[in-house]
């Protein structure tokens, strides 16, 4: 269970907690989407978040790279506290890669340009170095032959793999996935999950919002249930799925299993 001591000693050197969230609150107008979420994520750990629609899963992972600004509580990424300071935000974003449900590829750019954009313009790599990196990443996600196509010319599964490669191009320490397969046709889900699994095995630190139970069992180190803006339960996958402690977890699992 997460507790209020999650942030204790975070500034100490040698700490291997990559993400620490302490009592994070986020409201949209009068509606509280996050009502105080605390959790910590260790280096090379993979956490899968599940929970009913509207429970705040997306909102939570979006606060971690400042696509949403949290109203209260504290967030640390790799020891840096996320504040309004834009230098902090830029630094933290450069350490986090994010993959969206709807891919959000840049439709006016080729696959090569989509992936090479950030290395070229944020890291300021020379063209040649960036292109080598792109090809290496495309190799890794299994579609090296698609480099010169536009996103609209690819299948959903291929697009999502390009999106993963694009996020990896910045060489992030942490990857966030927001329902990466829920916009995909069933036959394409596996090819994307395989890439994510390979990443997990390579030691990437990851948070994956996903309802793919088989994947969660297989890949997650811990599974978390969000409900109504709160982190209700967290446990290793076997215990989470086979022996849930909370009533709400049992109810949620009975609905999706």
């Amino acid at each position: 269970m997460a507790d209020r001591s999650a942030t204790a000693g975070i500034e100490k050197a040698g700490d291997d907690r990559m993400i620490v969230a302490d009592d994070v609150v986020k409201s949209f107008g009068h509606f509280q989407a996050l009502k105080g979420v605390s959790m910590a994520l260790n280096k090379a750990e993979t956490v899968v978040i599940v929970g009913p629609s509207g429970s705040g899963k997306s909102t939570f992972i979006r606060t971690i790279n400042r696509l949403e600004r949290h109203d209260a509580g504290r967030i640390f990424v790799d020891g840096i506290e996320l504040t309004d300071d834009i230098r902090n935000i830029a630094q933290i974003r450069s350490e986090i890669g994010m993959v969206f449900q709807s891919f959000n590829l840049f439709p006016h750019l080729t696959v090569l340009q989509n992936i090479g954009l950030a290395p070229r313009n944020v890291r300021r790599w020379p063209k040649k170095k960036a292109e080598e990196k792109v090809m290496q990443l495309l190799e890794r996600v299994g579609i090296p032959e698609q480099a010169h196509k536009y996103p609209a010319e690819l299948s959903g599964g291929q697009q999502q793999r390009v999106a993963i490669a694009r996020a990896l191009a910045m060489e992030p320490k942490i990857m966030l996935f927001d329902e990466p397969t829920s916009a995909l046709d069933p036959e394409m889900i596996k090819e994307v999950l395989d890439v994510i699994e390979e990443l997990a095995e390579s030691g990437m630190t990851m948070i994956v919002v996903s309802h793919e139970i088989g994947f969660a069992r297989h890949v997650a180190d811990r599974v978390m249930l969000f409900d109504d803006g709160l982190l209700i339960e967290e446990a290793p996958p076997n215990r989470f799925f086979d022996d849930p402690q909370h009533e709400r977890t049992k109810r949620f699992l009975s609905q999706i299993l």
Partner: peptide, 18 residues
């Protein structure tokens, strides 16, 4: 231009100008 385009650009660390 959909909001997702802005979000993807921000998540990659692009400055507002870029």
């Amino acid at each position: 231009v959909p909001a997702g385009q802005y979000e993807a650009a921000r998540a990659l660390g692009l400055s507002t100008t870029r």
